[in-house]
Computed example of a mutant assay.
Amino acid sequence: MKKQWRRTFLTGFTMLIIGVLMGCGESEISKVEGDGTEEVKAEEKKDDAPKEQTLKVGETVNFDGLKITLNEARIEPGGEFDSPQNEQFVVVNLTAENTTEEEQAVSSIMNVELKDSEGYSYNTTILTEGIKGQFDGSVVAGGKLRGEIPFDVPASETYELHFSDPFKSGKAIWVVPSSELSGGGQ
């Protein structure tokens, strides 16, 4: 009896998760031009291909009602208690502006990753010195959130900063050549 109840519960729970994931859609992504009033829609490679928008440092993308801007990317040396396990800390400075009428959440762990030129992906790390605020939290309707995310990475010719929603397809990608990283460069 107990095994049958567990099996029924697990089957029901699995079906619920599958239903939730099937309800997840595709992110609306568009590049914001100039003063933010004109948007350029992301182009799809195929009808069923996920949307991607490629950007440069300083450019803004409208991602499901959040205007995300990569303000700056730089190298930080670390401090007395912080030394990179790879070769360097790359810190990105982002702004999220909520253009919807509902509060939205932003997470440096769930929404952001950094890739090197070889395609290796890096998640955020801890850096106690040289960071101005966190890029985590709720953004109220019409509000802004600005913060920085550190990554412990090896030296690379270029980096790609990816912003995505883990429950939807599509992403915004900023390409950052190492020569454009303030505070250093190869």
Rank of each mutant, 00 (worst) to 15 (best):
K2T: 14
F9V: 13
G12E: 02
G12H: 13
F13H: 00
L16I: 10
E26G: 12
E26T: 15
E33Q: 04
D35W: 11
G36R: 02
G36D: 00
E38G: 08
E38S: 14
A42L: 05
E43A: 13
K45N: 12
K46L: 13
D47K: 12
D47H: 10
P50Y: 08
K56V: 15
F63M: 03
F63T: 05
D64C: 03
D64M: 04
K67Q: 06
I68F: 02
T69E: 01
L70C: 08
L70Y: 02
A73N: 07
E76L: 14
P77T: 09
E80K: 15
E80S: 11
Q85M: 15
N86I: 14
V90H: 03
V90E: 01
V90S: 05
V91T: 04
V92Y: 03
N93I: 06
L94D: 03
E101F: 06
E101C: 01
E101M: 07
E102Q: 12
V106F: 04
S108V: 12
N111T: 11
V112S: 07
E113A: 13
D116E: 07
L127I: 10
L127Q: 00
T128S: 15
T128C: 01
K132M: 12
G133W: 08
Q134E: 09
Q134D: 08
G137Q: 03
S138Q: 11
V139W: 07
V139K: 10
A141P: 01
R146V: 15
G147R: 10
G147C: 13
E148M: 09
A155Y: 09
T158E: 02
E160S: 13
F163P: 04
S164G: 12
D165W: 03
D165F: 02
S169H: 07
V175N: 07
P177L: 06
S178F: 03
L181F: 09
S182I: 12
G183K: 11
G185T: 08
Q186K: 06
